[in-house]
């Protein structure tokens, strides 16, 4: 690209301010519970925003995105445990292997449209899940990756220190969201929107729809896997729940809760659902019952995400303002 996107500077500024605020948070409000929440939300924000690249921007309702989250956690954990590589190398292995996974699963799944696509992605996720459960010598089966993930220092960063872990997680999250933002605002991002709104027209205009969708699928998979990697670093392990279908269900709920028509909506949804999950887990042992009830209330009552309401409200205000000016 020869011409820089007009809003690039603004996006970088917002990202820098957000990162600075998040990095300052532990000094202003030193609270381990809040720190842990921010790290988990960082992982989920990457997961949900990457899912929204498919659902919100391309109209591909993947119900198997948890596959990448879990794969990222296991790929990273196994690289560290078995290969004894440095964290940046393990990061690279995670990115490359999840891209390969996205390429294979995507090449098969994208042949199917609409709801067929949803459940073939789910089926692939469950294949990975049953492999993780069955391949005990490698993955530890339903116990998960045990023994902790080694965290050797690199470039002056020591992730065995909690403050470093926090800074690393929020930096990866903000950088990841900034990159995803550039992707959705690029010409490629607008191609995806056109495919979502009118696939036929896009292909008449000479766009290779299959290739564009596959590219989106691979990109989303890689960022979903990075989310899983942040999670694996945080819990120092990887568990089958990361690969289970409920992960994908939660991802869908996150983007709906936050609102899929704004870029930041899914990340907001990740925050809301994480807080909600904490509250439910603390209050009752019947987690499914209560989370299910909340989801039903949302789906049958609210029907729109939080940032959708804010966006509507802002638009109404602006319209009222312009009317008042006339």
């Amino acid at each position: 690209m020869l011409t820089a996107r007009p809003n690039l500077a603004r996006d970088i500024l917002i990202a820098a301010v957000a990162l600075a605020l998040l990095l300052l948070l532990p000094y202003v409000w030193p609270n381990k519970m809040i720190n842990d929440l921010v790290i988990r939300v960082s992982a989920f924000a990457l997961f949900a925003t990457s899912l929204n690249l498919l659902v919100g921007y391309t109209g591909m309702v993947s119900f198997g995105h948890g596959m990448f989250f879990g794969f990222g956690a296991y790929a990273f954990g196994l690289s560290m445990q078995r290969l004894g590589v440095s964290i940046p190398t393990a990061f690279l292995i995670t990115v490359l292997s999840s891209a390969l996974l996205g390429l294979v699963v995507g090449a098969i799944s994208i042949r199917l449209k609409d709801i067929y696509f949803s459940f073939i992605t789910l089926a692939f996720q469950m294949l990975l899940y049953s492999t993780v459960i069955a391949w005990v010598p490698l993955t530890g089966g339903d116990q998960g990756l045990m023994g902790g993930i080694p965290r050797p220092p690199f470039l002056g960063v020591d992730l065995s220190i909690e403050a470093h872990r926090y800074a690393f997680a929020v930096t990866v999250m903000v950088a990841g969201l900034l990159i995803l933002r550039q992707i959705v605002e690029s010409p490629f991002g607008y191609t995806l929107r056109m495919i979502r709104d009118n696939t036929e027209r896009a292909s008449f205009l000479g766009i290779n729809v299959f290739r564009a969708k596959l590219t989106a699928f691979v990109i989303a998979g890689v960022f979903g896997a990075i989310g899983g990697m942040v999670m694996a670093l945080f819990v120092s392990g990887a568990y089958p729940e990361f690969v289970n279908w409920t992960m994908s269900g939660e991802g869908i709920f996150m983007i709906m809760l936050g609102g899929l028509s704004t870029f930041i909506g899914p990340a907001a949804g990740a925050l809301i659902l994480s807080v909600l999950n904490d509250v439910i887990t603390r209050g009752t042992e019947h987690h499914g019952l209560f989370l299910g009830a909340v989801i039903l209330l949302f789906a049958l009552g609210l029907r729109k995400g939080v940032t959708d309401f804010i966006a509507d409200w802002l638009r109404l205000n602006r319209e009222a303002g312009s009317r008042g000016g006339n």
Partner: peptide, 10 residues
């Protein structure tokens, strides 16, 4: 999807 997901959990 969400309604079904909720019901499976419940």
């Amino acid at each position: 999807l969400l309604v079904c997901y909720a019901f499976i959990l419940i």
